[in-house]
Design a binder for these strands. Structure first.
Lengths: 112, 112
DNA sequence: GTGTTATGCAACCAAACGTTGCACGTTGAA
DNA sequence: TTCAACGTGCAACGTTTGGTTGCATAACAC
């Protein structure tokens, strides 16, 4: 069963820019909104809003560091998100597999 | 590398109602907008718009049948979507795994 | 101090998701 | 053959979300 929290996680990673931000953060360890926006096609403020979304669902955490605020991935929460992805993928995969098997059975029946 | 088409696929399955619609369609084989809306918390028109989105990215196809229009999942395209999910999940998983290994190595170094 | 840099806040715009209302074709039964 | 019921499609509208710009403020570097 899918919960509301899971939906929040999904919609957080549903946005392509947010996914790329997670990629960048995983790659660099930690970064500020300004640093991230340098590597993304959107403004620093847009990045800041996305970071707020990711923070709200717990996918990133931040701490002030001098005059900048650095964000880093919350590994446990990203693992939960990955588990969600895998779960949905596995469900659909199983269902598709079953449909194919049925289709093949019908085919054999018609041929035979 | 992620393409624009892939982003479209992602955003299509990013919406929780659309994911549930795909579940329902996989389960029932084919259904009309009205039938789907009976099993969802949104109006028939909202469902119709979601179906239009899914149709635009090729995840469902439809054909008129009497006075109703029935939608069914395009299996090949859903397989592509599942592959996307798995790819992103695998990437993040690998990255998380690497980070953990590094963390453990540092830990051992400090202990030793 | 003064200028540069990073941030945060507010106003604003466009697209997406949701609603309701209505008009039109199809179905089935009086 | 009417006529009511059903399913659809279209239009108008409101709210949320992702994006922008502009500006004020705090921290660094000279």
């Amino acid at each position: 069963m899918t919960t509301a929290v899971d939906d929040d996680l999904w919609s957080a990673i549903g946005d392509p820019n947010r996914r790329r931000m997670l990629d960048l953060l995983l790659d660099g360890g930690a970064a500020s909104a300004t640093a991230l926006s340098d590597q993304l096609p959107v403004s620093r403020q847009a990045v800041a809003k996305h970071l707020a979304v990711l923070d709200r669902v717990g996918l990133v955490r931040s701490s002030p560091e001098g005059r900048e605020r650095r964000y880093r991935v919350d590994q446990a929460q990203l693992e939960r998100a990955v588990a969600q992805l895998n779960a949905v993928g596995a469900t659909w995969d199983a269902r598709l597999r079953r449909i194919k098997q049925i289709a093949e059975a019908i085919q054999r029946q018609q041929d035979g």
